[in-house]
Write a protein that binds this DNA or RNA. Structure first.
Length: 565
RNA sequence: GCCGCGGUAGCUCAGCUUGGUAGAGCGCCGCCCUGGUAAGGCGGAGGUCCCGGGUUCAAAUCCCGGCCGCGGCUCCA
């Protein structure tokens, strides 16, 4: 690639190539300002790379000449390909195998240093055209599952110019999903002993000066001057919770003190970094802070970890699809080595005692304490990090937190920050993509849709709707004068998990026809039976259509001539 | 913030190269059909062509600026 490009345009000097899980990136330095490539050129390059005969060409590794090269190339290995200098990251091994298929997906600028502007070609390469095709199929699949597309199609949320970029407006159906997620975490918090609090969105900046955010993250904070005083929107919930701790003297008997909040925070991310619900400027964390004695850290971590695994498991993220990382003391840190060792050991022991496999990331901890991050893999094979458990020595210090120990001496508590979903909006985006919009019943904004076959059964349909409503099931009705197949298509398009179809036959018998996902349908169902099974499926927060499966099973045992398509 | 691309009906998009009557499909509304399982038929309404400025007799179309979005880069306590 580097060889081909430099042959095509002498003004572009190859500067390196790296590979990650999304493909390759090749960087070039334009020798004159204004030298650039467009899409037309890119497709010429694609052709040329595939055609070029490099089989048998000697690729010679030569010692990097450090002179005259930008600093960023110091670690890059240099090769000579047919007399042209090329560079590869040390992790990328050279090969003179023929490239079967190549696609340049993006031409962009790469600024490794503020002054250096490189041309970056990003794309994918495969041994054969077929592999490239299947990659495209995957890309199309991912595009169809894009949460921004689903969010609009299912009427969940929207963004508006008048509101501002990165600020989400939730529609009724989107809010149902938010509320269900929050309700689930609320139950988790209850089990863990966290008590929910509520704190304001705006604070005098002095609070952010004490916490240190004002100095470190000022450019990401929303600040406003009102009546000659500066206020700031909260970028984090912890200072608010710390003030609750500080509102009265604390004794060792008061610990652990655990506070939780679904706190909406604002972080002014740069324009280009915003991305649907995955990266926004205002979002809600399922935040929680525990104030602990050192001897309480391990148990707390264990309890949280168990719940994290439970929550991820609810969505089918488990086993090989979950990875846990323990990040240890970085070079720059606060607190004493002894504190760090104790805390890190507590995290490690917690993981070991629970039998959770984990990987240590040496020196990757935050400056204020070690942490555990949990990653999981979605149905498209992508990895995400949402849950985090962080030990913090810094904030107790900055806010001079203390408690009176058994012997009357003043001690400093340890803080744990934890979030299971992380950001509710981000988590929502991930599960929307994971399920392709077809959410489990408990999360579905509309759980059941009643569909009429003829207008004569409207009263019967209304009775069924009322029955479900009275049982707390989210139900709506489609009783317009349209064909049944049209209504069924609409329900599928809107990702409604269950349809109840009623016609003359059902109205006469006092039964319903239940249709679920994957074209599965059961006739002659007793409405009360369905309600019971459905409530059970919802209460268990199952990701499967358990009610439907049970109906199918029951039907197979009976001799009635039911059918499933 | 940087590089590239884009913004036309509620949605998806065509028209823009070459300036001169604003288009399609879906959705919506109405009528017909009273339906048995993933788009029934016919008709109708619906537009500040993102905003501001410029060029021109004339701008959705060409030029400049802004806003918003998209793909990357950088960043993500």
């Amino acid at each position: 690639m580097q060889y081909c490009v430099s042959k095509m345009n002498e003004q572009l000097k190859p500067l390196g190539c790296s590979i990650d899980d999304r493909g390759f990136h090749c960087d070039f330095q334009p020798l004159k300002p204004g030298v650039w490539l467009d899409e037309k050129k890119a497709s010429e390059i694609e052709k040329k790379v595939v055609e070029v005969e490099i089989e048998g060409v000697t690729i010679e590794k030569v010692p990097s000449e450090s002179e005259g090269l930008p600093k960023l190339l110091e670690r890059t290995a240099m090769y000579i390909v047919n007399g042209v200098k090329a560079f590869l990251e040390p992790s990328v091994r050279p090969s003179n195998k023929k490239v079967g298929a190549l696609k340049i997906l993006n031409i962009s600028a790469h600024n490794p240093e503020p002054e250096v502007r490189l041309l970056r070609l990003s794309g994918v390469a495969f041994g054969s055209q077929e592999e490239l095709e299947s990659y495209f199929a995957w890309l199309r699949e991912a595009a169809e599952r894009d949460h921004r597309v689903i969010g609009q199609k299912l009427d969940l949320f929207s963004f508006h110019e008048e509101v501002g970029p990165g600020l989400v407006i939730y529609h009724p159906k989107g809010q149902v999903i938010r509320e269900e997620l929050i309700r689930m975490i609320r139950e988790v918090n209850e089990r863990l002993g966290y008590r929910e609090v509520y704190t304001p969105h705006v604070y005098r900046s002095v609070l952010w000066k004490i916490s240190g955010h004002y100095y470190l993250y000022r450019d990401k904070m929303v600040l406003a001057n009102v009546e000659d005083e500066e206020y700031g929107l909260k970028p984090m919930n912890c200072p608010g919770h710390i003030l609750i701790y500080k509102s009265r003297p604390r004794s060792y008997r008061d610990l652990p003190l655990k506070l939780s909040e679904f706190g909406t925070v604002y972080r002014w991310e740069k324009r280009g970094e915003l991305y649907g619900l995955l990266r926004v400027r205002g979002f809600t964390q399922d935040d929680g802070h525990a104030f602990l004695r050192e001897d309480q850290v391990k148990d707390e971590i264990k309890a949280i970890l168990k719940e994290v695994m439970y929550v991820l498991g609810l969505f089918g993220f488990r086993g090989e699809g979950v990875k846990v990382y323990l990040s240890t003391r970085p070079e720059k840190y606060i607190g004493t080595e002894e504190m760090w060792d104790k805390a890190t050991r507590a995290l490690e022991e917690a993981l070991k005692e629970l039998g959770i496999p984990y990987e240590v990331r040496e020196g990757e901890g935050a400056f204020y304490g070690p942490k555990i991050d949990v990653h999981f893999r979605d149905s498209l094979g992508r990895w995400w990090q949402c849950s985090t458990i962080q030990v913090d020595f810094a904030l107790p210090e900055r806010f001079a937190l203390e408690y009176t120990d058994r012997d009357g001496s003043k001690k400093r508590p340890v803080m744990i920050h934890r979030a299971i979903l992380g950001s509710v909006e981000r988590f929502m985006a991930i599960i929307l993509e994971n399920f392709g919009g077809r959410l489990p019943t408990w999360l579905s904004p509309v759980q059941v849709r009643v569909i009429t076959m003829v207008s004569k059964v409207r009263d019967y349909a209304a009775r069924i709707v009322n029955l479900l409503k009275s049982e707390g099931i989210r139900v709506d009705i489609d009783d317009g004068d349209e064909t049944v197949s049209r209504k069924i298509k609409r329900a599928y398009d809107e990702a409604v998990p269950y349809m109840i179809i009623v016609g003359m036959r059902e109205a006469m018998q006092g039964t319903i026809t239940v249709r679920g996902r994957r074209n599965l349908q059961v006739k002659d169902v007793n409405p009360e039976l369905f309600v019971r099974l459905l409530k059970d499926e919802i209460a268990k927060r199952s990701i499967k259509q358990e009610a439907l499966e049970k109906l199918v099973e029951l039907q197979q045992h009976s001799s009635k001539g039911n059918q499933s398509f």
